[in-house]
Structure formats: C-alpha cells, structure tokens
Amino acid sequence: MRYYDEITSVTEPYLSQNWMLFAPDPLSDDRGILARVKCGNGRVTGFYDVTRPYVARTQHDRFFPSRVDRLVSGTITQLDTPDPVLERLRNQEVEKKKRPVPLLPAEKSSRNKAETFLARFSLSQLTDVCEGQPSAVQVRIYVHELPSWSQRKDSSARGNTRFEDLKWRNAGAAG
C-alpha cells in the first residue's frame, strides 16, 4: 500500500485512474441532424433524418461498425461545447459588464467550418432529392437529453429535446 501512495502522490490529480479517465461525461443525450433542401424550382423538401441510417447500420454490424455517425456527433459536440477557458473568461466578462461577449474570430471560424461540414455531409446523403440538383441546404441539429439514470426504470420518464436550425447554405458552396 505504501508504494501505491507514493505513486498516487506524484500522479494525482493529473493522472488519477478512476472512471473519469475513461468516461468523464457518460452518455446522457442523443445527437443528430436533419436536413432539407431547396430545389431549383423553389420547392422546399421536408426534413430528412440524415444520421439515423448510420446509427441503424452501426447497431446491425457489431463486429466492424462504421464510424461515420461519429463524424456528425463529434461535429455537433464541437458546435455545442465551448473552450472551457474561453467560457470561464466570457462568463467573468458578462458578470462585470452585464452584456454578452461576442465570439472571437477563431471561434467564429471553427463554428463556420463545423456548419459547412454538416451541410456537405447532409448533401452527400440527399443525392436523390431535386433530381440530384439542390440549390441550397439547411441543417437542423437536434439534441435529445435522455432521462437521468435515477429514472431509467420509469417508463413515463421523458427527456428534453432542443433544436437549432442553421442558416441556409448554397448547395454549390456546401457541396
């Protein structure tokens, strides 16, 4: 035990080995995207669930699953999760000045790249709409927060779902 204490005194808190090392934020939501397109004649399609087919394929092939759905969920996380240091500084500024602080140029660029990726990915999945010639695409991000673990046996427990509609993007620029 003495040896373990010596190692722990050096490695903790930076290399502590507990469940946080492997799962700091256990799964608590379902994330995905819906997309719709504008056709050249002005018709707008309904929203199509772009991520669900990949999730179904992953669940079907347990030995060699596709990782494509991780591209989408990782990008949504990128949009949804600010840099912790910037977030803390921003919150301090908001408390001082009582007004929101605008995004930094690097944050705007990162968000724009993520939105462009989601639009391109959506277009790659909607090849049959508008006779293959969509003029614009709009992505809707959804995050369904699952009921808490304490409610997992309660069949009436429901989570909250939030949506964010991204701006329309020209299909030529997004594709």
Rank of each mutant, 00 (worst) to 15 (best):
P84Q: 13
G172N: 13
G172E: 14
I7A: 12
E131N: 05
E131C: 07
K113Y: 12
L21E: 06
H60F: 14
T51W: 04
N91A: 15
S110W: 02
R162N: 04
F64G: 11
E115N: 05
V137Q: 02
Q125K: 00
A173L: 11
V101N: 02
D69N: 12
R52V: 08
Q59L: 07
R90G: 07
E164N: 06
R140W: 09
V10L: 08
D154M: 03
N160I: 11
F117R: 06
L79H: 06
R62E: 00
D5I: 03
Y4W: 14
L86K: 09
R31F: 03
A119K: 11
N112T: 09
R36F: 10
R88Q: 06
F121Q: 01
K167R: 09
P147A: 03
A119S: 08
H144C: 02
A136W: 01
V85G: 04
E87N: 15
T77K: 05
R52C: 02
Q92K: 14
N112H: 14
K108G: 14
Q125T: 15
I7R: 04
V94R: 07
L79Q: 05
K97F: 14
F63N: 09
F63C: 03
D30G: 10
Y48N: 04
R158Q: 08
D29Y: 10
V72Q: 03
K97R: 14
N112L: 05
S110Y: 08
A119G: 05
V44I: 14
R88Y: 11
G46K: 15
L103Q: 07
Q133A: 15
S28K: 12
T77Y: 00
R158H: 10
Y142T: 02
D49V: 04
L103M: 11
S135Q: 03
D165W: 03
W19H: 12
M1F: 13
T77R: 01
G74E: 03
R140M: 13
A119P: 00
S110R: 05
P100S: 08
E145F: 13
Y4P: 05
T75V: 14
R36K: 15
M20T: 12
T51H: 04
R111Q: 10
H144P: 03
I7T: 13
D80F: 06
Y14M: 06
I7V: 15
S148E: 11
A173E: 15
V72I: 07
S73L: 00
A136E: 09
G175Q: 09
H144T: 13
Q138T: 05
A171N: 06
